[in-house]
Computed example of a mutant assay.
Amino acid sequence: MEEGEGDMFGPVKRVYEWMRLFEGKWMVAGGWAIDLHIGEETRMHEDVEVAIFRDEQLHLGPLLASCETMAVEQGRLVHWNMEKRLEPPVHEIHVSKGGEVQLEILLNERSRGDFRFRRNEAITFPLARMNLQSEFGIPYLNPEIVLLYKSKNTQKKDEIDFTHIFPHLNEGQREWLKQALIHFEPNHPWLGKLLNN
Rank of each mutant, 00 (worst) to 15 (best):
M1N: 12
E2S: 08
V146S: 08
L60N: 12
P62S: 07
R76A: 11
K97V: 00
E185N: 11
Q57R: 02
I145L: 13
G31A: 02
H37R: 00
I145K: 06
E41V: 15
D114C: 13
R129Q: 03
E185I: 06
S96E: 12
F184V: 09
H168L: 14
E87T: 11
D161W: 07
G24A: 12
E175N: 13
K150T: 03
L169R: 04
P11E: 01
H94N: 10
V78W: 03
Q102L: 06
G192E: 13
L63T: 01
S151I: 12
H45A: 02
V78Q: 13
V95F: 01
I182V: 15
E68Y: 02
W18G: 03
T124H: 03
M8H: 12
R129K: 01
L191D: 09
N196W: 10
V28E: 07
A33T: 04
L64Q: 05
V50E: 08
D47F: 11
R119G: 13
E159I: 00
K193P: 07
P143E: 11
E5G: 07
E73T: 10
E23P: 08
T154G: 01
I160Y: 13
L36F: 02
N142A: 15
G31I: 03
E5V: 09
S111I: 11
T163F: 01
G31E: 08
Q179K: 13
K150A: 02
E68S: 04
E87Y: 02
E121N: 12
K97D: 11
P62A: 06
L58G: 01
M44D: 14
E17Y: 08
R54D: 13
K84C: 04
E92D: 15
T42E: 02
Q155E: 05
H183E: 14
R129M: 08
D114G: 11
P126K: 14
P88E: 11
D158F: 11
L103K: 04
G75V: 04
A122F: 12
E171K: 14
W18D: 06
Q133E: 08
I138Q: 03
L147S: 04
H164F: 10
W80P: 06
E175Y: 12
E17W: 06
E175M: 12
S151F: 12
E49A: 07
W190M: 06
H94M: 12
G10C: 10
H94P: 10
H45Q: 01
L64S: 08
K13H: 03
E104I: 04
I105K: 00
I93C: 11
L181A: 05
E121L: 09
K13E: 09
L103S: 06
F53W: 15
L148W: 00
K178D: 14
E68P: 05
A71T: 12
N108W: 13
L58K: 03
Q74R: 15
R85P: 05
F125Y: 14
R20A: 04
T69S: 09
Q133F: 12
K178R: 15
E104M: 11
G6K: 05
Y16E: 03
G192T: 05
F9R: 03
L64A: 00
F166R: 11
N170Y: 14
A128T: 06
L106E: 14
F115N: 00
L127E: 09
W176E: 15
